[in-house]
Design a protein around this nucleic acid. Structure first.
Lengths: 243, 243
DNA sequence: ACTGGAACTCAATATTTGTTAGACCCCCGG
DNA sequence: CCGGGGGTCTAACAAATATTGAGTTCCAGT
C-alpha cells in the first residue's frame, strides 16, 4: 500500500512540497489496520521499529500510572492526518500507549524508511520534525488551558481545538463534529472527575453555546465558545510557509 | 565564539557523536549573552532567525493570556545544556516568550547554521530533533502530573524532575539543588495560587522529605519523594543508544 | 417486548484549592 | 538607627472540584 494523502495534505497546508518530496512520500510502503474503540494501536515500550498515522476516527495517547488506583491520563488526541507516534523514531520508545477512541484506522510506516528520508531529503525531514513540534505546541496549550481555565472553559477549549484541527483536514464543517469520547474519557483528558465533566457539558448547553448529544456536537455560538475558552489557533501553525 | 560543551554533553549522554558530528557542532558560531532574573531572553512572535541554549541558570517558557486578569503560565523549565527554543527552527515562530529565572546565560545560534546541518548531517539532525522530542515528553509528563497528582505530590514531582535533569548535566549532586523560583513563579508553573504552593512546600517539609530555604533545596528522603511524586525518569530518555 | 448493562444525570456531602487579610522577616537605602 | 518593600508564612473563609450513591435513559441481546 502507498502512503495515503492525509498526511500529504497536512504538510501542504503548511508548506509547498517539491515533486521529489511528493514522489518520495508516495513511494513509502505502509500497512493499514482497523481498530475497535479502546483497542491498543501502539503499546507503550522501547525499541519501536515503525510509527503510525491516523486515517479515520481518532486516537489518544494513554498514560497509565503505577500504583493501586490505576489512574489514566490522556495527554493527546489525534485526528486523521496526524503522525501520532513519529517521535518514537528519535526516542528510545514511547512512554505511553496509543489507543483508538471510537472506531479508527491507522497506517504504519517503518523507521528504516524514515531514516532514509533523513539521509536524503532534508526538506522533508524538516517537515516531519515540524509535525512533532506542532504536537509539542499542542501539549503546551493543554498545559496553559489546564492551569488557567475553569472546567467549562477548559472543555470549551478542547472543543474549539478539535473542531479547528478537523476543519484543517476537511473532516468537519458547518460547526458540526463527532467526538467519539465517553464522558469518562473526557475526564481522563481534562483531569476532572466524570461527574464534573457532566456538569461542564451541561453548563455549555445551558449557556447555549452548543448542542451535545452522545458523540455529536453542534456549535451554536462559535464566537461565544472561543471567547469563553480564550481560544487562539495560532499554536496550530496553520500558515503556509517555507521551512 | 564556538558552541559550548553543554549541549555536546547533553547529546553524548544519549548517543555517540562521530568526529564529523563533533567538528561540525564545534564550528557553529554563537553569541553569548547574560540576563537578569525576569529578563526576556526570547520574545514571543513569528519569524525567528536563531535559537538559544541555556549555559548558566535557568529559563522558563512564559505564556501570557489575553484578557484583563493577565494570567501567566510557565509551561517549561530549562537547565544548562537545554536547546530551549530549537522548535522555532521548524515552526513559524514561538507562541510564548523565554524568560530568565534567576540570573542566566544563554547562547544563540543562527537558523542558517541549522539548515546547513539538516542538509549535510543527518545523524546530527536526528539528534537535534530528539532534543525537541524530549521536551515534548516532558510536556506530556507535566500534563500527567497536573491531572493525576495533588499539590504536594505535584510539587514533589517537579523537584524530582529538575534534580534529575540537573544531575544529568552535572549541575547538581548530593541531593542538593538551587531552584531560583519565587513561590509565585512556582504557582505559574504548577497551576496553583502562590498561597497553595506555600502550603505544599510546608507539607513536604513537615513530611521530612526535604529542607527548603529560599532557593536552596536539600532532599532528605529521595525514595520518599519519588514515591509521593510517583516519579519515573523513563520519559527523560537518559539511555545511550544509536539514533 | 423484556432485560441487563453501561452511560448519563443529579443531589448531598467531603476534600481540595482560591481569596483575602495580615504578621513576620530580611535586606537595603536614607 | 530607622523605615519601606518584597518575599515568606499563617489563618479564616469562600469557591471549585471530588466522592458517593442513587435514579434515569438508552441500547444490545434475548
Amino acid at each position: 500500500m502507498a502512503l495515503t494523502e492525509y498526511f500529504v495534505r497536512y504538510l501542504q497546508r503548511r508548506d509547498t512540497l517539491t515533486d521529489d518530496d511528493l514522489a518520495r512520500l508516495r513511494s513509502v510502503p505502509t500497512e493499514i489496520r482497523s481498530f475497535q474503540p479502546g483497542d491498543e494501536i501502539v503499546p507503550a515500550g522501547p525499541n519501536k521499529t515503525r510509527s503510525c498515522l491516523i486515517l479515520k476516527g481518532m486516537a489518544g495517547r494513554l498514560h497509565l500510572l503505577p500504583g493501586r488506583s490505576a489512574q489514566r491520563v490522556i495527554t493527546a488526541l489525534h485526528v486523521p492526518g496526524d503522525f501520532v507516534d513519529l517521535h518514537a523514531f528519535v526516542l528510545h520508545g514511547i512512554e505511553h500507549s496509543v489507543v483508538a477512541v471510537g472506531p479508527a484506522e491507522a497506517e504504519f510506516i517503518g523507521h528504516d524508511e524514515l531514516t532514509e528520508i533523513t539521509e536524503n531529503y532534508p526538506h522533508l525531514t524538516r517537515l516531519l520534525w515540524m509535525s512533532t513540534a506542532i504536537d509539542a505546541a499542542i501539549h503546551r496549550q493543554w498545559l496553559v488551558a489546564a492551569n488557567a481555565l475553569r472546567s467549562s472553559a477548559h472543555l470549551a477549549h478542547l472543543v474549539c481545538e478539535i473542531y479547528t484541527r478537523l476543519m484543517a483536514v476537511g473532516a468537519a464543517r458547518d460547526y458540526r463534529l463527532t467526538l467519539p469520547l465517553l464522558q469518562r474519557e473526557l475526564a481522563d483528558i481534562l483531569g476532572y472527575s466524570s461527574i464534573h465533566i457532566n456538569r461542564a457539558v451541561r453548563d455549555l448547553r445551558d449557556r447555549e453555546l452548543l448542542r451535545w448529544t452522545g458523540t455529536d456536537i453542534e456549535i451554536i455560538d462559535w464566537p461565544g465558545l472561543v471567547r469563553l475558552a480564550r481560544f487562539d489557533p495560532e499554536y496550530l501553525d496553520l500558515e503556509r510557509r517555507r521551512r
